[in-house]
Nucleic acid binder design. Structure first.
Lengths: 223, 223
DNA sequence: ATTCTATTTTTTATCGATATTTTTGTTGAC
DNA sequence: GTCAACAAAAATATCGATAAAAAATAGAAT
């Protein structure tokens, strides 16, 4: 694994988890010391993060963390509604037996984490998110369009910045768990209409908490 | 304008116009001589081109030009159908007076190029494409979702790699010209349904030529 | 002739230093 | 006290060189 990759992953995580505050500037000169690498590496990693919509390049003024706002969240949710619904529909329609098996497996892994989750425990929440992502990825994996899947990926990551705050709500977790079960059932029955409907509801669930999410994050220590 | 930006633009154009053959490797060491800059600059420019879907990063094996294939074209068209249709719908519904004025202006510019176009003349075709893009950009400009507009942008550029071959067909140009006129009318009347319908047809028009496009490009000199 | 290994060449990833640009801070005039 | 002009400091963009890795080549052994 190349150094750039490692740094890229680290910075991405730092942004997603809010360790680099939204809209704060990412100064290569400063960051390089955190990772003990050259400034060039940081710059390359930041350039790649632009693709993910997590970093913004300001001409001659370096890079900064993408904003974190109610509008941004609304934008993400809206785009997800359009794209992910289509990805799921196509995937459910096109998935073969191997896909089914992998999906059942991913669901099992997710279910386990959902049972065991401890809201107070950061590591537990992280494990839950990993399993959650794996399940949703697998749900869309059979979609033939690589482009749509790439878009979906970007949106999923960007959305996680907001969702992780919501994960602390027991009500959300319970509701999400229901969704996942229903999603699996619909997918296995090849009921694309049902699967897309649940996907919609599932995505919209965080929206209700929008305001609370934003203000909760605003309290995160800056820089 | 920063050096990276300039090199980025140049390489992008080179890829879109096929001067760097699809799937060929982009060797920083070699390219840097073409532009008289350091290897770092090339690498950074290439990293940014990943966002545009024109360049692919191969771990420890540098970068290469994105593939050019019937599947890729089908993928692009499919994604455009989903995303651009939505962008246009939202834009037509949300556009204000300023937007209308700018749209009429862009249409005028496009119409002029369409009248004057000379299929044999490369500069003329390029001017046409610039005007074409400006018109379509403006058509979607009032869509409130920055994310969807960004996706649309990427797809438009990727699609152009294929479309530019089709531009040499008089039949396509004539049909496209009709589309544009109808699009403008529908947009001004705020007839979103009509506008999206035409957008659909417009996007699909190149698909018929798919096979011919691919083989025409295959004849392009490789590296 | 084919496969395996060792060696050379090419290419990539990475570094540390420097020129340029932006930001910050200070002083002096109105 | 505000503004402008200038000087100092910080940050960015850029370079050229090097270490590490991959690809190409050549030679030996089956």
């Amino acid at each position: 694994m190349t150094l750039i990759e490692q740094v890229y992953e680290s910075i991405r995580e730092a942004i997603v988890l809010g360790r680099y505050a939204p809209e704060s500037r990412l100064k290569a000169q400063h960051i390089k010391d955190d990772y003990g690498v050259s400034g060039t590496i940081i710059r390359e990693a930041l350039n790649r993060l632009i693709s993910d919509g997590l970093v913004i390049a300001n001409d001659r003024r370096g890079f900064s963390v993408a904003p974190f706002s109610a509008e941004d969240l609304a934008d993400i949710i809206q785009a997800r509604l359009l794209i992910e619904v289509d990805v799921v529909r196509q995937s459910v329609e096109a998935g073969d037996d191997d896909w089914e098996m992998a999906l059942v497996g991913a669901y099992h892994g997710l279910d386990k984490q959902e049972q065991a989750v401890d809201i107070e425990n950061e590591a537990s929440l992280r494990a839950l998110e990993t399993a959650n992502r794996a399940f949703h990825d697998q749900l869309g994996a059979a979609c033939p369009s690589a482009t749509l899947r790439a878009f979906y990926n970007q949106l999923f990551t960007r959305h996680y910045r907001y969702r992780r705050v919501a994960l602390r709500e027991q009500a959300i977790l319970t509701a999400a768990r229901e969704d996942h079960k229903t999603l699996l059932d619909a997918a296995l029955k090849r009921d694309a209409a049902r699967a897309t409907e649940i996907t919609r509801t599932h995505i919209l669930r965080t929206q209700k908490f929008s305001d609370r999410l934003i203000s909760a994050f605003a309290k995160t220590p800056t820089e």
